[in-house]
Design a protein around this nucleic acid. Structure first.
Lengths: 340, 340
DNA sequence: TTGTAAGCGTTATCAC
DNA sequence: GTGATAACGCTTACAA
């Protein structure tokens, strides 16, 4: 089966290459007769236009890049990224775009990083986290390639972004514990210096304050979104803060590590200690005990980011949109009434 | 900053476009003098050749496709895919290839599926699972695009593939339980009709037989690689098979679900019942109790698959290679001596 | 409605 | 060692 090109199709259909092109791109001004002849040939030989050549001619590749940073295995392994990417991917495919997923690591040369973001090949870029945003914005400066962020970034007020409502989620989680009668509630948070973390911490504090509870700085830990971090933190706290009866974890992974520490110390969950997570990862349902958590629309975040990006690429929407998706409290078995 | 092209660079460096092209592609037959002049301009204006145009001219895109099937959220969420993809990605980047990750779902039209595999844009394809292999091979027939599989497929003996040594892993896992004194050992397996599953089941049976233990068909379950499956199976078995004291799970996710069922029934692990998983997912370390498992080189599988593919693309290696990577038993807390 | 021809930015062939 | 020139396969004015 020899490879066809537009000229051969044109010849077989007894028309010029322009007619073929018009048919394939659904342009008007093509007689029905010609259209039928062309489509017949296309079908018969299963002809598919060469996307590379098309890209060269149109200066657009219908390909978008997704960039995230390559963090430790443990964080990669939690399933969050897969779901987020899936949302992006499926929205893109629906609208005719391909997706290229790249991991950036700080050990990577600038050269390589620019290579990943080669603007000749990308119609737009989605940045999945803070670490990668600045680099990308800088690399793509003056190249007018649309960018959309997952997670708002106050440093870039001119870029559209999607996020879960972090304040709402953290407030709800904390309030859930307060409602259960807990008075000494810790908070374990992830990435430092990120708006997301700020909002979650603020919500945690304000929930406590709004309900007349003390806010203690030594009940707050900011580390990383890993099981290891939750594990270490609760290992220490179970020794140092005997009064504490509950903890809000800013990710399900933190909660998972925390519950292991509790288990090893013989502290029963939720009997003696309650744990609430954040993310609603698929695995959270199968933790021991199943985790009460703030479920965020991870897939939906990806989907919406892709929508915003493609709209921008197609100039459907010019304005900057920074959107918050609502999270939802899912009560399972890791949270219960404060011990008497 | 206006966009440069090769002609403008040529003009600025006072050479012809051919010289620029040669310099950029490290061809011989360029005077040092010319090379220096060109590189100066390239550096100064930060010129990067248009990869799309290059692809059109060379008929190769330096882009490879990775295809996997879109399975239930729960399976996606376990971190296996991310690690596998990361291995592929990093090897590709090292060797100058881009990677496009696509999820195939059976609800997808053939049209769309072919779109994803558009041979004009892909120098090669890696298939991450059985479901997707046949489709891909068929779609790419006669297009002579190299394919590499993760997971051997006896239906395609002419395609190179990488896998973990499933027999070895399952045998080791089962033997570990036997060595601990267990006599009634169940086996919960994943995908049906896959070589991987066959080998794991065979290893499980032979380990039992080799050590003089009975092999019972009702101690074997073949379902899917999900927590749900492990949960359901052990829920039933704890009722129906009171003698059983251990189970080998063909994935860490199955084990995770199984341990939850055990927990809910009040069966202590490893006191009354031992569990061994397979995969060595990052999360397995934080399960309650931390899971004894067969750690497979997930990242390494991806890396090796990419190596094989790129070698094939570059015609470095013509022959079919079907490789097995060695798994490793990691003993943690979910397995212990058989109860007396 | 259709066809011609220029252009997209490279690489590769072949004289010089 | 260098520089025209012809591909590569498509889109898109513009002319017919």
């Amino acid at each position: 089966m020899e490879r066809l090109n537009i000229d051969k199709v044109a010849k077989l259909a007894h028309v010029s290459r322009s007619v073929v092109s018009r048919v394939l791109n659904n342009h008007p001004n093509v007689s029905d007769e010609a259209r039928v002849r062309v489509m017949k040939v296309v079908k018969k030989y299963n002809y598919r236009p060469n996307a590379v050549a098309r890209s060269l001619a149109t200066q657009s590749t219908y390909q978008i890049g997704v960039l995230t940073s390559r963090i430790e295995d443990e964080s990669l392994g939690n399933g969050y990224w897969t779901l987020l990417y899936l949302g992006i991917f499926e929205e893109c495919i629906r609208r005719g775009y391909y997706v290229r997923l790249s991991f950036y690591s700080s050990s990577m040369s600038d050269e390589l990083h620019e290579h990943l973001l080669n603007p000749h090949q990308l119609d737009g870029v989605i940045c999945l986290n803070e670490e990668v945003t600045d680099l990308t914005v800088e690399t793509l400066a003056d190249k007018d390639i649309p960018i959309v962020l997952v997670g708002h970034n106050p440093k870039h007020p001119d870029i559209s972004s999607v996020d879960v409502d972090n304040y709402d989620g953290a407030y709800t989680a904390t309030k859930h514990l307060i409602d259960l009668g807990h008075k000494q509630i810790g908070g374990i948070f992830g990435d430092q210096n990120v708006e997301e973390t700020e909002h979650r911490i603020r919500a945690y504090r304000e929930a406590l304050k709004d309900h007349g509870l003390d806010v203690r700085d030594d009940y707050i830990s900011v580390g990383s979104y890993t099981q290891q971090d939750g594990y270490n933190t609760l290992n220490v706290w179970t020794e140092d803060h005997k009064q504490m009866t509950a903890v809000f974890c800013a990710s399900d992974t933190i909660a998972m590590g925390g519950m292991l520490a509790l288990h090893e110390k013989g502290v029963s969950v939720p009997g003696q200690f309650s744990v609430v997570g954040f993310d609603g990862l698929p695995i959270s349902r199968y933790m021991i005990p199943p985790l009460t958590t703030i479920e965020q629309p991870t897939y939906g975040k990806g989907e919406r980011a892709a929508q915003l990006l493609i709209d921008k690429i197609k100039n459907i929407d010019e304005k900057v949109i920074q959107e918050n998706l609502k999270p939802k409290l899912v009560i399972r078995k890791s949270s219960g009434p404060a011990p008497a």
